[in-house]
Design a protein around this nucleic acid. Structure first.
Lengths: 148, 148
DNA sequence: CTACGTGCAAAAAGTTTGCAATCGC
DNA sequence: GCGATTGCAAACTTTTTGCACGTAG
């Protein structure tokens, strides 16, 4: 029932060799290098399988199309950072932890997803050092949500 | 340039009177009660304006279509909790704060979004027993419970 | 050989846009 | 009246599905 096909192999390889979460289109482009004539439908069908098999994890950022990343390569719990300038997504291998107390009475927290937004190192440098160091250590919630 | 139209008024009213984030379709249905012949395109156009004017906030949960909630009613920074059993979405008026240090060197965090997943009080109590039936797709956003 | 997997194209589903008619100011 | 706004329909984007053919086991 679970067959090994050139397509599935190429798709899985594309995801695993990527250093970042890839969109379905990006996976198609990458895997097409191995398997010409590869169709987008096949990519979606295999992505669905891989997610069910828990070999691949879906990264769904607000307002963005789903991205897919290897579950084996990034096995541990992590979050994401999206640069508001270049739109790239980075893994953040840190976690605030201890979020269970945030839930209202009677609610049980099983897991959580966190996305940070801001300026990545590259865009930050490119923009000229306009950001004072003090901001880096300021309280996260003090300024609330300020769209970039 | 900012005209007051029956359509915009109805759309804004629909969002503000809702107790939970509404989808574009739900807003159309609700506002259509006031303005017959209201088109979905008008809903989207006005939603875009309202978001730009910061009167409305977009709630984008992974794998879900965008929902819109009044910014005046929930003006302060908050997060969301989605029940993995009944799929309902609740506001969480708490925040872990202090997330700036999570970012890698050189990265600057401007804002963040957090979604908790788990069992809501209702489903938790009903664990093992039957789950409320009507809520499979309806996403209520509770307002009556106190944050931790 | 058998039936799962693939490729193509068409269909869904959600959102945006072009354009003529409408309506607020 | 002028021009922003609307409604409709068509375009667009992303994902899914139908179907005949290919191919792994």
């Amino acid at each position: 029932m679970e067959r090994t096909t050139r397509q599935k192999t190429a798709i899985q390889a594309a995801i695993e060799s990527a250093q970042r979460p890839l969109s379905a289109q990006e996976i198609l482009e990458q895997a097409s290098l191995q398997v010409t004539q590869l169709g987008i439908a096949t990519v979606y069908r295999n992505l669905k399988s891989l997610v069910l098999e828990e070999k691949v994890h879906v990264v769904t950022l607000p307002g963005e199309n789903p991205r897919y990343e290897s579950n084996t390569a990034a096995n541990h719990h992590h979050h994401h950072f999206q640069c508001t300038t270049c739109q790239r997504v980075f893994d953040v291998h840190d976690c605030p932890g201890d979020l269970k107390r945030m839930a209202p009475q009677g609610f049980v927290v099983e897991r959580h997803e966190l996305t940070l937004y801001g300026r990545c190192a590259d865009c930050n440098a490119a923009a000229g050092a306009a950001v004072p160091a003090a901001v880096t250590t300021a309280h996260a919630c003090a300024s609330g949500h300020d769209p970039a």
